[in-house]
Design a protein around this nucleic acid. Sequence first.
DNA 1: TTGTGGTACCTCGATATCGAGGTATGGTCT
DNA 2: AGACCATACCTCGATATCGAGGTACCACAA
Lengths: 175, 175
Amino acid sequence: MLKLAILGFLHDRPLHGYELRRHLAALTGHVRPISDGTLYPAIKRLESDGLLVRETEPGTAAAPRHTLHLTEAGRAALLDRLREPEALDVSDENRWFTLLAFLRHLDNPADQAAVLRRRLAFLAEPASFFYEGERPLGAEEFADPFRRGLLLIARATTEAELTWLRETLAELDAA
Amino acid sequence: MLKLAILGFLHDRPLHGYELRRHLAALTGHVRPISDGTLYPAIKRLESDGLLVRETEPGTAAAPRHTLHLTEAGRAALLDRLREPEALDVSDENRWFTLLAFLRHLDNPADQAAVLRRRLAFLAEPASFFYEGERPLGAEEFADPFRRGLLLIARATTEAELTWLRETLAELDAA
DNA sequence: TTGTGGTACCTCGATATCGAGGTATGGTCT
DNA sequence: AGACCATACCTCGATATCGAGGTACCACAA
């Protein structure tokens, strides 16, 4: 989710649009750069919602350079979204991974752990992934090698995330 | 991509909208069911593009039941999309995984292998994933445990896919 | 000097999707 | 008989995003 990412980056420090664009691209390993037609309208919406303000840099004679600052409302909105449960059990991976990228902004480790626990509950829920009724689907069951591949990749991803979640929760709880 | 999935399912056999909806939900392990407001307009667009035709079932006295059939143009469009390179190096994972789910419809193993090879080239390309300039990012480099987790999960997914791609390509080439 | 490429910002139209609402029918359980 | 649920289809308004286009300015190279 773009707005969440924008708020997340501006929480660290003020940026202007172009820098924001580069940060956003780096978030996906430069695989999914965000388009201008997406970024600038999003900034405007956040601005008109009062979540950020822009300061035009006076010194620069060139094209106007707007430095974007998070407002207090913006900071609060970010923390709300990070804690908000709706985005978690949601299967929209992009939304969840974006949230994870900025989870550090929740300064309370217990809040962070609560978020991870909800995600863990969602992923570990047996009914959620590739079940045919009560029965889990085995990769063998797909005659089609491509469907089998899809299942194998999905499983590997889920396993990797579960492992990481359990380790990280153990560390958070120990701290 | 929804349209690709609709064409893919109808390639197997005619279905009506409701069945299609269940098939589409099953494709994501019932994690991301498609909404009616997405499905029915998509069907209409495909119909007006001449890619499918609907036959109203005469026997059913109840609500009109439309059986959707792929036309020849629809079949051709599906095969085109499956071969189309633009969707491959694209980093939109959903698009790629949807394509994979229906790759079996390309009846020529050499065509299938060509698609997998393009994907392999994209994934293996060193500049594509989580590089900071020339230097690959190590998980250790992230002080933030959540960003580290993100990288670990992304890597695990990529590794799983690469392994599967190489194995499957070997099998396809052997056949 | 002319071009190329990077910085920086913006708009427009098109498409995709969602969510919530609505309209039916038919079966099952109580 | 009434409640409830599954089947089956549809519309509407809102939002998100894309891609292509445009406007500047500046620096460096050919």
